[in-house]
Design a binder for these strands. Structure first.
Length: 223
DNA sequence: GACCAGGCACATC
DNA sequence: GATGTGCATGGT
């Protein structure tokens, strides 16, 4: 919790996920795969303009048209397919009711989502945390990079391993997981870019240096 | 013009 | 299990 508090103190609440409705959040989770958020916003705007942001409408739209509308978010053919698979899953398992899907047991929902082609662990967890409001920790590229560079996880650490690091040492609280992940993205964008040789100047770095000087607990206890 | 961004599936060894 | 590749736009 100490690292979280250091980040929250520095940046304050992030009010995530950027999206008006659970359905918009779910669609955004797919569209943002390996893609800058500004590009996702353009695609979402297009879908809103065409009044397609509902399970029934999105399921009914022609794949070619969908691909054209989400073009700005990149990988548009693949993502159109993935949204199609997701809508089929929603219709098939939950009768097209987003509410029923989001109220499902989170472990069951996660297992189901992972069977959908195009939904991996991060996308599934983003949907469960930010659309359903259930406490799973979302691990993304920023999380791995930040913790990797500070020597808190090994370079090639697997998704589930990093997730366990957080979920094993934090209280199971959706609001906390929400804020923590959002704060890590903020740190990643500002201080831990891929192109820079290492993270520098972030609140996390200051915190870790301070801890090392005091030299009592293993750093992981501070997650 | 290179590099990068809130992944994932699939092939191959 | 590990590693490599295709998918693609738009900002820096």
């Amino acid at each position: 919790m100490a690292m979280y508090r250091a980040l929250f103190k520095a940046y304050g609440p992030q009010h995530w996920w950027p999206g008006d409705t659970p359905f918009e959040i779910m669609v955004g989770a797919v569209l943002t795969q390996n893609t800058a958020w500004v590009n996702v916003e353009k695609a979402i705007r297009n879908l809103k303009r065409e009044r397609l942001l509902s399970p029934a409408r999105l399921r009914a739209v022609a794949p070619r048209r969908l691909a054209r509308l989400i073009r700005p978010s990149g990988y548009f053919n693949i993502k159109a397919d993935r949204l199609g698979h997701l809508m089929a899953f929603l219709a098939g398992r939950y009768g097209g009711s987003l509410t029923r899907m989001l109220e499902d047991d989170p472990d069951e929902l996660r297992k189901g989502l992972l069977l959908v082609s195009g939904i991996g662990p991060e996308t599934a967890d983003a949907i469960i945390l930010y659309a359903a409001g259930k406490p799973v920790f979302v691990v993304d590229a920023y999380t791995k990079r930040i913790f990797g560079r500070h020597g808190l996880v090994s370079d090639g650490a697997r998704y589930d391993h990093v997730q366990q690091l957080f979920m094993g040492s934090l209280p199971r609280n959706a609001g906390l997981f929400n804020e923590y992940h959002a704060l890590l993205v903020m740190v990643g964008k500002r201080h831990c870019k891929k192109s820079a040789p290492r993270c520098s100047g972030c609140p996390l770095e200051r915190f870790l240096i301070l801890q090392e000087r005091q030299g009592d607990l293993p750093v992981l206890d501070h997650v």
